[in-house]
Lab assay of single mutants.
Amino acid sequence: MTSCHIAEEHIQKVAIFGGTHGNELTGVFLVKHWLENGAEIQRTGLEVKPFITNPRAVKKCTRYIDCDLNRIFDLENLGKKMSEDLPYEVRRAQEINHLFGPKDSEDSYDIIFDLHNTTSNMGCTLILEDSRNNFLIQMFHYIKTSLAPLPCYVYLIEHPSLKYATTRSIAKYPVGIEVGPQPQGVLRADILDQMRKMIKHALDFIHHFNEGKEFPPCAIEVYKIIEKVDYPRDENGEIAAIIHPNLQDQDWKPLHPGDPMFLTLDGKTIPLGGDCTVYPVFVNEAAYYEKKEAFAKTTKLTLNAKSIRCCLH
């Protein structure tokens, strides 16, 4: 018999989150649709729960009410004593943790798909938090293969000092899905179709896995975050240069030392320094102006996964 890495157990509980950011409308629209008619997301033997994560922000069509829901799922915020004085999103995070967690427990949901849009030209993107997770690498390989020839990129946010504390991190297997470009507060049919297909293929993978299909060893190309880059700023902290036209919409493309990065209003080009080629992502993302992030630098690498098969009882 072929030796293989056996994944822990079959997958039982899956959640699909929309509206973690209330103005990213593809996930909101799909989740609302699936709450009314969820036939397309159901798979035999699998509990799939669509869920609106930040209903107040969705109602106002804004990213958040008090603070970013997708950055506060750490033990400090989840452990705060519940009171009306807490920011709305912290209270909501505790409610979500109660419903789908608790985080880092045996009772937490197996998989959470968190649906997002970006204003950046990132196409279909899967966000991975753990480079050693054979199950998710296999799932992402399946999704990428199923979507081809449509490109699907994998963004690895594993980093020693950049801690995200994402909404989906309460699950055993957290999956971020990011599709763009799409303006905030807008629905685009092409973007919706791409996100819908990503979810379909992900659920198909889980179904095949649960039925005992063995997935042979595989490898995927990923883009691992190195650092986030702020806009150049003046002495008052105001933005002093904008994304250069040569960099705009060039997510995932190589940016070499000396290539144009920013452009000042008086026409001066600010190039990339250093001696390493990087791959920019979230270029000129609207939501990241407040976070002082013009783009993120990534490096390209390959992740390998062992063969996996479900432990059938």
Results as ranks from 00 to 15, higher is better:
S3V: 10
C4N: 08
H5V: 13
A7Y: 09
E8G: 13
E8H: 09
H10N: 09
H10P: 13
I11G: 03
Q12F: 07
Q12A: 09
A15P: 01
I16H: 02
G19M: 02
H21Q: 07
H21N: 13
G27K: 01
V28S: 10
V28E: 04
V28Q: 14
V31E: 00
H33Q: 09
L35T: 15
E36F: 15
N37V: 11
A39R: 10
E40L: 02
Q42P: 02
R43K: 07
R43D: 00
R43G: 04
G45R: 07
G45D: 12
L46M: 13
E47A: 07
V48E: 01
K49H: 06
P50R: 02
P50W: 03
T53A: 15
T53D: 01
V58W: 06
V58G: 05
V58K: 05
K59R: 12
C61N: 15
R63F: 05
R63Y: 10
Y64F: 14
D66R: 05
D68E: 12
L69V: 10
R71C: 11
I72V: 10
F73L: 08
F73W: 15
F73N: 11
L75C: 12
N77C: 13
L78Q: 13
L78I: 08
L78R: 10
L78M: 15
G79A: 12
G79D: 10
G79V: 06
K80H: 15
K81V: 14
K81R: 06
M82R: 12
D85Y: 13
D85A: 15
Y88G: 08
Y88F: 07
E89V: 04
V90E: 10
R91G: 13
R92D: 07
A93Y: 08
A93C: 10
Q94V: 07
I96W: 06
N97H: 10
N97S: 14
H98I: 11
F100E: 06
P102S: 09
S105L: 09
E106A: 15
E106L: 13
E106I: 14
D110K: 05
I111F: 05
F113H: 01
F113E: 01
D114W: 04
T118L: 11
N121L: 01
M122L: 11
M122E: 01
C124G: 05
C124Q: 05
C124I: 09
L126S: 00
I127T: 13
L128Y: 01
E129F: 08
E129M: 07
E129T: 13
R132F: 06
N134Q: 15
N134Y: 15
F135I: 05
F135V: 05
M139N: 00
H141C: 04
I143A: 00
L147Q: 03
A148Y: 11
A148D: 15
P149C: 04
L150P: 01
L150Y: 13
L150N: 07
P151D: 08
P151F: 03
V154Q: 01
V154S: 03
Y155Q: 07
L156P: 00
E158L: 01
E158V: 03
H159P: 14
L162K: 13
K163Y: 14
Y164E: 12
Y164S: 10
Y164M: 07
Y164D: 07
T166L: 08
R168C: 10
I170Q: 05
I170F: 07
Y173M: 13
I177G: 02
I177L: 07
I177S: 01
I177F: 10
E178V: 13
V179K: 00
V179M: 05
G180I: 00
G180K: 01
P181I: 00
Q182G: 01
P183M: 04
Q184D: 13
G185P: 02
L187C: 05
D190G: 06
D190C: 09
L192P: 03
L192Q: 06
D193H: 08
Q194G: 15
M195F: 01
K200N: 14
K200L: 12
K200W: 08
A202Q: 00
L203R: 01
D204N: 07
F205N: 01
F205P: 03
I206D: 02
H208V: 09
N210W: 04
N210K: 11
E211V: 07
K213V: 07
E214D: 10
C218W: 00
A219C: 07
K224N: 08
I225E: 11
I226V: 08
I226N: 08
E227F: 01
K228F: 15
D230F: 12
Y231R: 03
R233L: 15
D234V: 05
E238K: 11
E238Q: 13
I239V: 10
I239D: 01
A241S: 07
N246S: 07
Q248T: 06
Q250T: 09
L255E: 01
P257F: 02
G258V: 06
P260H: 05
F262W: 08
D266N: 12
K268H: 12
I270D: 02
P271A: 12
P271D: 11
G273S: 09
G274Y: 03
D275R: 10
D275Q: 15
C276M: 13
C276V: 11
T277S: 07
T277D: 10
Y279W: 11
V281S: 13
V281W: 01
V281I: 08
V283Y: 02
E285R: 03
E285Q: 09
Y289D: 08
K292D: 11
E293S: 11
A294R: 00
F295D: 01
F295I: 03
F295K: 00
K297P: 03
K297E: 03
K297V: 14
K300F: 04
K300I: 08
L303T: 03
N304M: 09
I308V: 14
I308P: 03
C311W: 09
H313G: 11
